[in-house]
Design a protein around this nucleic acid. Structure first.
Lengths: 117, 117
DNA sequence: TTGACATATTCCTATATAGGAATATATTGA
DNA sequence: TCAATATATTCCTATATAGGAATATGTCAA
């Protein structure tokens, strides 16, 4: 079984660094495809294909104006990722637990208080 | 060119939903592989392979104790993802800009204040 | 209507999967 | 030393890429 498709969800879509660049670039203002090409230094077909993936997972919104297609980041779609990462916020400041601290807490060698196995 | 490898960075590693499940499960306490297998209902080789990817990008730490390998989430490695998503925090509460508001702000039809093209 | 411009799509290929099955490695206890 | 236990690795395969090149589609301006 291969990986889940890039357009299956936001997590898969933003795994590609160029797509993260695009989302960052489109956060403030909507931009035409040509602007993305010029400013991020990617090939035009490449940009179109990345935008298609981002659109399919709702990470960008698009609006046509004449020959131009104006894309803009839909920040709402990033929120689930933010929430997922936020869950770990309380852990990344935690100290390592020393042997001494384990002893004082009456924890076993596995660092557990109850249900050793 | 295929996608970047799953073990190239945290973004690619967590694109796989089962790996997110594992990281969530290992956030509080370190756990033996067998516990992950039992509690998350995955095949043992599958768990070992996912753990390998997570270990290669620093998302989990491992400690051997006898026959057991105790894995634990390294929340620090999730932080870069949190920071990236956090950048968009100020955008996802933004209101849509109506025609009226655009007119008052002297924006053009593209919603831009300066540099129309 | 036609040419120029902007964007999207198609075709191509090497490559890295995820999971299943089978097997290998490592450690313990007797 | 040997069996049991815990975990890791290997082999297999269908599949979805990302990027390059070429081309198609859509829209305007004259």
């Amino acid at each position: 079984m291969p990986r889940a498709a890039t357009d299956s969800d936001a997590f898969n879509a933003v795994a590609e660094p160029r797509r993260r660049d695009i989302l960052h670039y489109l956060a403030n203002q909507e931009r035409a495809v040509g602007e993305i090409v010029a400013n991020l230094g990617m090939e035009q077909p490449s940009v179109s294909k990345h935008l298609k993936v981002l659109r399919q997972v709702g990470l960008v919104r698009v609006r046509r104006h004449g020959r131009h297609m104006f894309y803009r980041t839909n920040a709402e779609a990033i929120r689930p990722m933010h929430d997922w990462t936020k869950f770990f916020e309380r852990y990344w400041q935690r100290q390592l637990i020393s042997v001494k601290e384990r002893a004082e807490a009456k924890m076993d060698v596995w660092g557990r208080v109850q249900k050793p196995e």
